[in-house]
Design a protein around this nucleic acid. Structure first.
Lengths: 340, 340
DNA sequence: CTGAAAGCGCTTACAG
DNA sequence: CTGAAAGCGCTTACAG
């Protein structure tokens, strides 16, 4: 199949390629008859302008890169879908990159995306102190993070208020009479892990409940680590009556561990997750969790980044949005029940 | 930030841009000293060749489009991840497109991808008779389908043997003494739906078990429809003792329905899914299912498409691969137990 | 309202 | 081993 170009269309329609270009770009200054004639030829020959050639001049590729840890993680597949949909409606395509939380891979992806001249990058996961991404801030390269943020004062982000989220969870358990509440944390190198832990410590102090150091266990945002952390909590001399996990996957893994050890949820142990992934509401899971407005978050991240790229004046200032999380009550929390 | 180009590098290194180009493209015919000098300048100034300009000449974008129904469906997120990883290692980027099974959206995406000059397209979902995609076959545009195939004799695909898969499921239930086996089917406009149903009918006949017409219910590959189909089966005068669902999400939805109706699995009703998604193995699900070699499938689809694009002679022939599925025994099937 | 010319940042024969 | 020239398929001032 021979490629048909703007010159072919111009020749057939008996005009110059400049005029054809004007028609393609919906420029007003073309006589109606000329425009109609050209449009007809374009349709007849199924001409599609070459975006590569266009991009070379306009310096716009209408492509955005999305860098996330893992598309298999439901949180990221759900938000990716919203981002992709939002971007498509705005005329952009999405290049997807899974880093598996490896920073060398993330750096490689950043290079690849820059070489491909993407118009901007959305990060679904950043370490709070990521040096390479921080460079972007100085260079003025358009990017935004969602879910997690950088410490950098001028970075753009759309996140959920993670400190507040854990406070809501602790308050719920305290209201149910729990005083021995354990927390399975995520890595504090991420703002999510850091802020959620911060929220736990702060509210534990303000409620004056048991602040046993062993009640804080590292789950590394990993199902396996969470399982092991839970086991440790269950086998301790003073096991907690409630557990909060820093995300749902860890909570569900904790649930698995608790059941396998012969305990019952919520009778023996109350459990709260975080994120409200689809799986959390399944009939056999019914996990009480903290919901973050992930659709809104994803949608805003995509929309605001595009506005920034398009250079709307109002959007040239920094984007820093914090959405409010809320408690989703299901079947894994109940009044404290001290068997011992 | 001013963009640094090949001309800048050439000037600084005191050579022509042709020579710089040769170095970038790892062309042998450059004197070692010259090469080293240029490489040094490139590194010093952080020069990154512009892929857009390159693509305009080479007609290669090293970009592949992936068209799938829904990245949130675990089957597609898991296979997408493998595809993305495989492609990255081969130097390609992935543009992702969610169609939600809407054919107009699929057509729109095909136009977008063509305009962006992708080197090829991977389809994770095709209707067996899709006319627009069939056109690609005639035009010789490089593409491959995985999981589902077109009827077209010359199309490229990597699939799992779906007829065989259901036969394995039926045989397992028959071995457990089941004679009243229901089937919740997917749309037959997809090869998966068609072949799995075909497998069910064929093996039901060959085993000479109850071939009641009402035992085949349409679940449309939808959780909601599956739930309703299951309800219908449970409320019938002669309910089945076992149910096979054409995919795991439908099976898990069926499980939910069965439990909510006060029946027990597998005591009252045995249940088999299809696909073996991660969720199927969860402690609270434990779904017996048919596993398809999805990682291998995704990996092969990506690898073979790239080979085809690179024009290796051996790969210029059509790619038609059928992988063998297998039974994954868990906790949702048991010997028949006729309570009535 | 329309066209000729320059140019985007590269690669690729063609010479030497 | 290296350079000058042409060209990929467009857009964009500049003229008229």
């Amino acid at each position: 199949m021979i490629k048909i170009t703007i010159v072919d269309i111009a020749n057939i329609a008996g005009v110059s390629k400049s005029t054809v270009s004007r028609v393609i770009n919906k420029n007003k200054h073309v006589k109606k008859e000329t425009r109609d004639r050209i449009l007809k030829v374009i349709k007849e020959f199924g001409y599609i302008p070459d975006n590569i050639a266009r991009s070379l001049i306009t310096k716009k590729t209408f492509t955005i890169g999305l860098i996330i840890p893992d598309i298999v993680n439901p949180f990221y597949s759900e938000t990716s879908k919203i981002i992709e949909e939002t971007l498509r409606k705005l005329g952009y395509s999405l290049i997807i990159c899974n880093t598996n939380n490896q920073s060398d891979l993330q750096n490689k992806y950043m290079d690849i995306l820059l070489q491909r001249q993407v118009d901007g990058i959305i990060f679904g996961s950043v370490k709070t102190n990521d040096k390479n991404i921080k460079k972007f801030v100085e260079q003025g390269f358009p990017f935004i993070t969602y879910h997690r943020h950088l410490t950098n004062k001028n970075s753009n982000f759309v996140i959920s208020d993670d400190i507040e989220g854990i406070k809501i969870a602790v308050k719920h358990l305290v209201d149910l009479g729990h005083k021995d509440i354990a927390y399975i944390s995520g890595p504090t190198s991420f703002s999510t892990g850091f802020n959620r832990l911060k929220g736990f410590i702060e509210s534990r102090n303000s409620f004056k409940i048991n602040n046993d150091g062993s009640f804080i266990q590292d789950g590394g945002f990993s199902e396996k680590k969470s399982w092991l952390a839970t086991k440790k909590l269950l086998n301790s001399t003073n096991p907690p009556t409630a557990i909060i996990a820093a995300n749902d996957l860890m909570a569900i893994s904790a649930l698995d561990c608790i059941l396998q050890h012969g305990f019952s949820v919520p009778k023996d142990i109350s459990l709260i997750g975080y994120d409200n992934i689809n799986l959390a509401s399944h009939a056999r899971i019914q996990l009480t969790t903290i919901s973050i407005a992930k659709k809104k978050m994803a949608n805003l991240a995509a929309e605001l980044l595009v506005k920034k790229i398009m250079g709307k004046k109002e959007e040239s200032k920094k984007i820093q949005i914090k959405l409010t999380p809320k408690l989703i009550l299901r079947k894994t929390t109940d009044k404290v029940n001290r068997i011992k």
